[in-house]
Design a protein around this nucleic acid. Structure first.
Length: 447
RNA sequence: CGGAGCGUGGCGCAGCCUGGUAGCGCACCUGUUUUGGGUACAGGGGGUCGCAGGUUCGAAUCCUGCCGCUCCGACCA
């Protein structure tokens, strides 16, 4: 993409309403524009990031065995009456009426809907287990939306729902999602720690929140420092192997990790030696829980069990805040110049900066790099604006492109361009071809 | 929902108290200049001052009502 033809309304000055860094940077970087309280348009740059995050979630969900569907944003009130939640949900649910006066609602979540779908489509225990998920816009009429996309009223969420015959099966499904979440967040360059959540009326140990550590997080977190160092790595996972999955879950839940909601200082101090006690802030980006037959019973969603009896599903639901992640990643990865995108979610993989637009040699070299990098499958932003070098650097650093390829007459005389890392600032002087190969290597593109 | 505050060009703000031709910086357009980390100068375009009503010869400014938005607290992916 040539920046001179892109839609990137960056701003020098910080909009007055933005209080936290991700919100400021998303506004300044031209990623989003507020439409009304807690509701945002995603401009091209923000939309690219959102799609990248979404794709990683899709890939990892399906890898773990979940099946994508897409349910509507607008739901009928009837289903919610059956589950009893139409009245329980309160003012957070946006209720609307169609022209016939039928009561509808903009879905804040989809347990009822998916349970109805599963109930109609799954008849026999032989069809179990199943995990269905979708990534869809939700609306919750928050009392107080804030922090940009971190707590919007309209937000993009991945929600998965598992269907099993019994609790043992449900645990396997739960563990699939648990491990899938570890992979998902790790791929995005995030350090996400599963923490025991408040299990509410259901009880039991099968509910966890996944929080990424960031200074501006909304929740206080208390954990064993060692947990924050765990890494799943790239190794293959056998998703059908229940004991193996359980072993991974056990590793991540072996030690103390809780938010301020469930924190017990005495237990923390008893279990964790002082030098390993980590007190920090965290942002919740995922939440998984097992809820048994909470919805299948009232909605009468059953399968025929092996004994010929109708059995309500054993279910769980598993959420990831997809749009929130865009903000959360920025909270976890920025500096005073702007965003620092992890490579996996960067809106562009490399920026070519022409230091002297209009200089014959520089223009030719940039055009050539742009064409070759693109042909090699890299997503390139070529800053071909008629701006001074400083302005280009400021823009590209603000929007957080992980790698800059800096091209100017001086370097070209020596036969080199500069490859600069956004994260470390480290600069390498390389021949253009070497720089291309290096970038292809970084992003795993075949040569 | 309780508390506080703000709505003046795309963004950041002044003007309001004490009514009298709507202003500054950034951004944008034109020209010159400059060219390796947000050049400099000159010229220029753009605003029914959130909406409605009222007071007044005259309202961004005073009064009333409404709407929108933000921040702090209790709840949430």
């Amino acid at each position: 993409m040539r920046l001179s033809r892109y839609f990137l309304p960056v701003q020098k000055e910080t909009p007055a309403e933005a209080e936290i860094v991700s919100h400021r940077l998303m506004l300044r970087g031209g990623m989003i524009r507020q439409a009304s309280a807690g509701i945002y348009s995603w401009l091209p740059l923000g939309y690219k990031v959102l799609r990248k995050i979404e794709n990683i979630v899709h890939e990892e969900q399906q890898r773990a065995g979940a099946i994508p569907v897409l349910m509507p944003t607008i739901q009928s009130a009837d289903l919610w009456r059956e589950s009893g939640r139409y009245d329980d949900y309160g003012a957070e649910m946006l209720r609307i009426e169609d022209r016939q006066g039928r009561e509808m609602l903009y879905g804040p979540t989809n347990e009822e809907q998916i349970t109805e779908i599963a109930g109609a489509g799954i008849r026999s225990y032989r069809d179990l287990p199943r995990i269905l998920y979708h990534i869809q816009w939700k609306f919750r009429d928050e009392v107080r939306p804030r922090f940009g996309v971190m707590r919007g009223r309209e937000f993009l969420m991945k929600d998965a729902y598992s269907f099993d015959l019994d609790k043992e099966g449900a645990r396997h499904s739960y563990n699939r999602m648990f491990v899938s979440y570890l992979r998902t967040f790790e791929r995005m360059g995030l350090k996400a720690v599963p923490m025991r959540a408040d299990s509410g009326p259901i009880g039991g140990d099968m509910t966890h929140e996944f929080l990424i550590l960031a200074e501006t997080g909304e929740s206080g977190v208390f954990l064993d420092r060692d947990l924050a160092e765990l890494s799943l790595g790239e190794g293959a996972i056998d998703w059908e192997d229940a004991p193996a999955l359980q072993a991974i879950v056990d590793r991540w839940t072996a030690s103390y990790a809780r938010t301020d909601e469930t924190h017990e200082e005495a237990v923390f101090e008893a279990e964790i030696p002082e030098n390993r006690r980590l007190t920090a802030r965290g942002i919740e980006v995922g939440h998984i829980f097992y809820f048994g037959s909470k919805y299948s019973k009232p909605l009468n969603a059953t399968v025929m069990g092996p004994g010929g009896e109708a059995v309500p599903f054993e279910s769980g639901s598993y959420g990831i805040g997809v749009s929130r992640l865009a903000g959360a990643i920025i909270e976890a990865s920025h500096d005073d110049k702007g965003i620092i995108w992890p490579e996996a979610v960067a809106p562009f993989e490399v920026a070519v900066i022409n230091l002297r637009q209009g200089d014959e040699a520089a223009d030719a070299a940039c055009e050539s790099l742009y064409a070759t990098l693109t042909a090699r499958g890299l997503d390139v932003l070529y800053d071909d604006r008629d701006e001074r070098a400083g302005a280009k650097f400021a823009t590209i650093d603000l929007i957080g492109i992980p790698w800059k390829l800096v091209v100017g007459p001086r370097g070209l005389k020596e036969g080199v361009v500069e490859l600069v890392s956004r994260r470390t600032g480290e600069t390498q002087n390389l021949a253009p071809d070497d720089a291309i190969n290096r970038l292809a290597d970084i992003y795993g593109r075949a040569s």
